[in-house]
Nucleic acid binder design. Sequence first.
DNA 1: GGACTATCTTAACGATGTTAAGATTCGAGA
DNA 2: TCTCGAATCTTAACATCGTTAAGATAGTCC
Lengths: 222, 222
Amino acid sequence: MSPPPIRRRVRPKPPRKRGYHHRDLRQALLTAALQALPEVGPERLSLRDIARRAGVSEAAPYHHFADKEALVAAVAGECAQRLLAALEDAVTEAGDDQRRRFQLTGIAYIRFAVAHPAHFRAMELPGIADQMPRDVRRRFDAFYAEEERRLRAAQAEGVFAPLPFDRMILAATALVHGLAHLVINGATEAKPTDVDHALRLARDVTAVFGAGLLPRSRSPRR
Amino acid sequence: MSPPPIRRRVRPKPPRKRGYHHRDLRQALLTAALQALPEVGPERLSLRDIARRAGVSEAAPYHHFADKEALVAAVAGECAQRLLAALEDAVTEAGDDQRRRFQLTGIAYIRFAVAHPAHFRAMELPGIADQMPRDVRRRFDAFYAEEERRLRAAQAEGVFAPLPFDRMILAATALVHGLAHLVINGATEAKPTDVDHALRLARDVTAVFGAGLLPRSRSPRR
DNA sequence: GGACTATCTTAACGATGTTAAGATTCGAGA
DNA sequence: TCTCGAATCTTAACATCGTTAAGATAGTCC
């Protein structure tokens, strides 16, 4: 695949800084990994490379993480926190118009994926989602629970059509998740890095979907 | 990650069959890879393992593929052909009711992903989509072109609401692609391997979406 | 200050992708 | 049919990776 590109017989071996003890290697490894993540991509993350970036020997990480997967899971946890923060920003900015709030959440999800594709895909590495930190999972669940509560109430008030709730949510989640993937993988007309174009697509697509959620007895818009 | 699980100092080294020349190693490697694919997962595919399965030395594949990525791309091409065949079966079975045809295509996509998750994910390996065989791409494009033609015609006849066509297609693609991912990754209530449950979800979700595509002036169903 | 323990390094193992060099076989031209 | 170049395959090696064992270093607690 890529291990020996061209260069051979080279050993940079950067000099060890700071004394024998690092005092906070765990955090240093995480930040090094988060720095490496967008450079090499989530599937090409290397334990040894991360250790080198942190200026430490290749076996040092094992005193802070059980194995590479545990480190990557911690990285993915940080990514999830950032995604969650983006979603929380979106809903607070959106306010109480539940239709607008619903759409802006989806757009924020797509925006995060396009702006930080490596961080986004890191959360989907095989066998990683289950190992994410508990508190991140809890905060995520709490966020979803709150939004779900608001959506149910809005539907009860006639803001959304009386479709089966779970299916509606699943459809919206799938729509947004799928568009994020399509854009990132270059399967759309938009360049994978063109955030503005991606946001335009996100707005249009969520609008198409949202139109189907309007109650039948009302006018199509507003 | 996983390279040295427990077993150490073992070298099975299965005996070489057939003479020095294999006469059709390229195909043998492809079938070996396609057999290994569901067993180990697309990201854990190993060139050496594939060579071993084909009963050949570890360097032999390089006489038929430029590198591992080229082999994997060929495998992904075969996966794409199978997916295309599933979609073609779906549309021929669906007949000319364009609404039904549209939904059944999406369901077939999800069914393929859930029934063959490894094959499905193989097509999304980083940097693989661009290297797929030309003829597979052409056949895929032809399929999409034909379906798009029919959909446009149906929309002109009032079968679908007068939404912006490209956005509607993109939304549908994203919806189906996203649901496939959610189910495969275990992000839904369904077990990732429960094909029947997944199909139920697919039917419901595409129905929710399809309801939004109905023209406003008609009755909600039919 | 001395022992204990956490932390870090060095060195090694097996695995992987890849390449160079040599062995074997095929096939076309004499 | 013989021969010889090219295609095909093997062996051996290299660099890199994840991981572990054993030893060095440095904080901490009595």
